[in-house]
Amino acid sequence: KEWNEKELQKLHCAFASLPKHKPGFWSEVAAAVGSRSPEECQRKYMENP
C-alpha cells in the first residue's frame, strides 16, 4: 500500500536521528514508523531519500 505523509515523516525523522552504523538500524527505523517492515523502510528511503 502507498505510504502516507505521517509514515514518510516518521521514516525521515527516524533516519535523521538514529545512529546509522548500528546493527539493526532499519529495524529501529521500522519500529519508529510503526506500520512498516525494516525492508519496506529501507526500500522506500532508497527510492526517495
Results as ranks from 00 to 15, higher is better:
11 L>Q: 00
20 K>N: 11
21 H>E: 15
28 E>S: 08
45 Y>K: 05
37 S>W: 00
5 E>Y: 11
17 S>C: 05
22 K>W: 03
4 N>I: 04
19 P>H: 13
29 V>S: 02
11 L>S: 00
14 A>E: 03
34 G>F: 03
6 K>L: 08
28 E>V: 05
3 W>I: 02
49 P>A: 11
38 P>Y: 03
24 G>I: 06
32 A>P: 01
32 A>H: 12
21 H>D: 15
31 A>R: 13
10 K>D: 11
32 A>T: 11
35 S>C: 11
11 L>T: 01
45 Y>E: 07
32 A>R: 11
6 K>N: 13
17 S>I: 06
14 A>N: 06
23 P>W: 05
38 P>C: 06
20 K>Y: 05
40 E>D: 15
30 A>E: 01
35 S>Y: 07
2 E>N: 15
18 L>F: 08
17 S>Q: 09
24 G>N: 15
20 K>R: 13
19 P>V: 09
10 K>V: 09
33 V>G: 02
14 A>S: 11
23 P>Q: 14
3 W>M: 01
2 E>M: 10
28 E>D: 12
23 P>S: 13
24 G>R: 12
32 A>Q: 13
42 Q>Y: 07
26 W>Q: 03
35 S>A: 12
36 R>M: 04
29 V>P: 01
36 R>A: 06
27 S>R: 12
14 A>W: 01
15 F>N: 05
41 C>G: 01
5 E>F: 08
42 Q>L: 04
30 A>Y: 00
48 N>S: 11
17 S>P: 02
17 S>W: 01
36 R>T: 03
29 V>I: 12
30 A>G: 06
31 A>S: 12
26 W>F: 01
49 P>W: 04
15 F>T: 15
9 Q>Y: 03
4 N>L: 04
19 P>N: 09
41 C>R: 00
23 P>V: 11
47 E>G: 08
5 E>M: 12
25 F>T: 05
39 E>V: 09
45 Y>H: 15
34 G>Q: 06
23 P>A: 14
17 S>K: 08
25 F>S: 04
3 W>P: 03
7 E>S: 02
38 P>H: 05
5 E>R: 08
13 C>K: 13
10 K>H: 15
44 K>N: 03
30 A>Q: 02
38 P>S: 13
1 K>E: 06
1 K>H: 00
9 Q>C: 05
5 E>I: 11
41 C>D: 01
3 W>N: 02
13 C>G: 15
35 S>D: 14
3 W>E: 04
23 P>Y: 06
46 M>I: 07
6 K>R: 11
23 P>C: 11
32 A>F: 08
5 E>H: 05
20 K>M: 12
49 P>M: 02
31 A>T: 09
6 K>I: 13
16 A>H: 01
17 S>L: 04
26 W>P: 03
15 F>L: 14
7 E>W: 00
44 K>D: 01
29 V>G: 01
13 C>I: 15
3 W>C: 00
25 F>Y: 12
39 E>Q: 09
41 C>H: 01
8 L>S: 10
41 C>M: 01
3 W>G: 03
46 M>L: 10
1 K>G: 04
13 C>A: 15
3 W>A: 03
48 N>W: 06
25 F>A: 05
33 V>M: 05
17 S>E: 10
48 N>K: 12
18 L>R: 07
18 L>K: 09
46 M>V: 10
10 K>G: 07
49 P>V: 04
43 R>I: 09
17 S>F: 10
